[in-house]
Design a protein around this nucleic acid. Structure first.
Length: 279
DNA sequence: ACACGCTCCTGAACGC
DNA sequence: TGCGTTCAGGAGCGTG
């Protein structure tokens, strides 16, 4: 599932292909994903130049010269694939390939999303921060505004389990189920603890751990990026080893712990953690 | 302001 | 082998 590091990896993969190029052809193959695709989607983008490919949280932001910003979200199952059009047979369009972009550089970019939890929409570049999808979003975990004083203050008001609060995009942007489990495991914090019970020392430890986990995952994603000029391919899903997530019934990796990773449900979502060393 | 459950969707995995 | 059921989950939305 794409969380911030996967989305950043997609961004880094498509940026060199799109930035400075022009869209020669843009096609939306259905009317909606999670929300309607703009009626004028193709019209607004065809022939336009791409200035910059950015990211906010899990949203990819494609800035168009004299045009809108394209907000692209991968949802649960969204993927982006790049092909070079002049090399051999072009792969067939699949039934879940919803968006097709072709550039004057001879590249085709496909957006695929079987579950359609993703979305694509337009934003006004002058009011990007005010767009409803972005307006109430918390700080980026790697930004200066995400620090322990900030998090401490936010957690103090929350009665919910720390796991749920870290998933709240208004508190911190970009974390999903996997990286929250990993961060709490590394910080030795029990995911069921009420957020407000975390003390200063724990929050001061948690913030750099979240930073490290996101940084490491982005680095892993970066090293998985192929050179688009040489190899066609799917972006953003890369091999990554998790210490807690998905390891139900396996041994806790912490030295001398001897515990086993448990799986519980919190708000209908799986949490993986070690009862013995996450306190 | 916060908490919580519901909803969207499809493919994979599982049980009989 | 095949069919039905359950599960996975990001995040907006409505309700309390």
């Amino acid at each position: 599932m794409p969380e911030l590091p996967e989305v950043e990896t997609v961004r880094r993969g498509i940026a060199p292909v799109l930035e400075g190029a022009r869209f020669l052809k843009v096609q939306a193959r259905r009317k909606d994903l999670r929300i309607p695709i703009p009626d004028d989607f193709s019209f607004e983008l065809t022939g336009k130049k791409i200035i910059k490919v950015g990211r906010r949280s899990k949203y990819i932001l494609i800035h168009i010269e004299d045009g809108p910003v394209v907000i692209l979200h991968l949802g649960m199952s969204g993927k982006v694939t790049l092909y070079k059009l002049d090399e051999g047979a072009t792969p067939e369009i699949g039934k879940h390939d919803h968006l097709i972009f072709e550039t004057d550089g001879g590249m085709r970019m496909i957006y695929t999303d079987p579950r359609r939890f993703g979305l694509v929409t337009f934003a006004d570049p002058d009011k990007l921060d005010e767009h409803p999808l972005l307006a109430s979003m918390g700080p980026e975990p790697l930004s200066n505004s995400f620090h322990s004083d900030y998090l401490m203050e936010k957690l103090a008001k929350r009665k919910s389990p720390i796991k749920n609060v870290l998933l709240d995009q208004k508190i911190i942007a970009g974390l999903g189920n996997i990286y929250v489990c990993e961060a709490l495991f590394r910080a030795h914090i029990n995911p069921e603890r009420h957020a407000a019970t975390l003390n200063k020392r724990e929050v001061e430890a948690l913030v750099p751990i979240i930073n490290d986990i996101i940084r490491e995952a982005i680095a892993a994603g970066g090293s998985s990026l192929k050179d688009y000029a040489q190899v066609d391919g799917e972006l953003g899903y890369f091999q990554h080893q998790f210490q807690a997530y998905g390891r139900e019934d396996q041994a806790c990796i912490n030295q001398g712990c001897g515990g086993t990773i448990d799986r519980i449900a919190q708000s209908g979502r799986s949490t993986f953690y070690c009862k013995r060393c996450q306190l």
